[in-house]
């Protein structure tokens, strides 16, 4: 499961398009949300996040 530190997330959306599963989107507060059903746990978003807001 991708853990999101909402306080760190800037909502830049960089991970949304890098996600090979199209599992990510922005929430109504414009922070990252993950659809766990689609996530294949590849960790690309974790590696890519410039503010280190994601972990697994």
């Amino acid at each position: 499961m991708v853990k999101i530190e909402a306080a760190k997330c800037t909502g830049c959306g960089g991970c949304v398009n890098l996600c090979p599963d199209a599992a990510m989107s922005l929430s109504s507060k414009d922070v990252i949300a993950v659809d766990e059903k689609l996530c294949s746990k590849c960790q690309i978003c974790v590696k890519a996040c410039p503010v280190r807001a994601l972990s697994m």
């Binding site: 909502g11 830049c12 507060k29």
Partner: peptide
Amino acid sequence: EMKTKIPGVRRT
């Protein structure tokens, strides 16, 4: 647009 608040600039 993927953001809910346009035109909030979130990307560098």
